Amino acid sequence: MPRVLMLRDQEPRSQVEELGVDQLPDRSVSVDIDYSDLNYKDALAVTGKGKIVRDYPFVPGIDFAGTVRESHSDRYAPGDKVILTGWGVGERHWGGFAETMNVDAEWLVPCPEALSPRDSMLLGTAGLTAMLSVIRLEQAGLAAGSKVLVTGATGGVGSWAVQMLAQLDYEVHAVTGKADQHAWLKELGASEIVDRSELDGDTRPLEKGLWDGAVDTVGGKVLASVLARMTYQGRVAAVGLAGGTDLPTTVMPFILRGVALLGVDSVMVPFEQRQAAWQRLAALPRDLFTRMHVEEVGLGQAATQAEAMLKGKTRGRVLINPHQD
């Protein structure tokens, strides 16, 4: 009987439970899960502090990696290594905080041979989103050697973006409000550290142009400040909303400097683009994985880690081992 982290609309909100296989969703592929991970969206779901989950009982977890146990689809066979991110899993559909889960074949991608299930979840939605952001900036013409800002740099998306951009020879400036993490961000590849306080206040429509590109994981006033500080024809990949959904800016960065605001979605991105991004992730140098800060916990510790993440007390990646207490 697989164990899951079950959410209920009552106290306690989350609890590790055992389910019969017949209690899992009726979907085409059954996957034995090796690892999941904890993302910001998961933290909101587990704590109930965001309107992520609307139907109960519910198993959260927007990512997982594992091995196909049983398949009623021609796409996959028992023994195949697979990855799942996005598609509303962990939001509308039962997710990866489980030892086994049934999902639709269309939601899966093959796990590249160069990645173990643990490695793939060390990346997870965070790494995928960071790579999709890099690809968007490349497609928009951002040249290697350009100055690129990364906001929320100690988070999952931000810390992967810092490493990927540095590895591709961009000059990376990392934004954080955590003074004790400056050395780690430099180790990841940041050449400059920008204090978050410089960007989270009110800003003029245009400020001095400082950066040619940016990956913004925060939104709100921070994104408005970033847009105002782009150089001529700067490119900004917007991927997050931890700082709010409002965007208090003007059209001036766009019509006076030709700044491009590039939206990045990792939830519904088509299979071909998703698979191409995972192939690029699999080709990353191994030292990027070893430098990433990671904490590995079991299902029973997921709620504690979720609270810590929302309070800004985590960094890097949090892995969920469903077979660990």
Rank of each mutant, 00 (worst) to 15 (best):
W94Q: 10
K81W: 06
R27V: 08
T154Q: 11
V297L: 08
E99H: 13
W184T: 14
G79T: 07
M292A: 03
Y40E: 11
V269S: 14
F254S: 09
Q23M: 02
L38F: 04
P112I: 03
P12L: 03
Q163T: 13
M268C: 14
A214R: 02
M268Y: 15
G263D: 04
L188N: 11
V264E: 01
L142S: 00
P57I: 00
V89S: 03
G127N: 01
P253C: 12
E192G: 00
D22M: 11
K51A: 06
K208P: 03
E91L: 11
V236E: 12
R204I: 05
G79L: 07
V259Y: 09
A105K: 13
E138M: 03
A260S: 10
V29P: 05
G316Q: 11
A283F: 02
A65M: 02
L165G: 10
G240C: 11
P25K: 06
D42R: 08
S71P: 10
I62T: 14
P248I: 08
G152P: 06
M1K: 00
A126V: 15
L132Q: 04
H293W: 04
S116K: 05
L38V: 09
M230P: 10
G189C: 14
A242E: 06
T125D: 11
G316F: 00
T129Q: 01
R204S: 15
G86S: 00
A65K: 05
G300N: 12
R274W: 06
P60E: 12
I52V: 14
G156Y: 03
L123Q: 05
H93W: 02
K186S: 08
R92E: 12
D212A: 12
E70P: 13
V236T: 14
A77Q: 07
K221A: 15
T250N: 06
K147R: 13
Q181T: 13
A276R: 10
R229I: 04
D287V: 07
G20W: 06
G79V: 09
M164G: 09
A105P: 15
P270C: 05
V318H: 02
P285N: 10
E198Y: 09
R257T: 11
A242C: 08
G213M: 00
G156L: 09
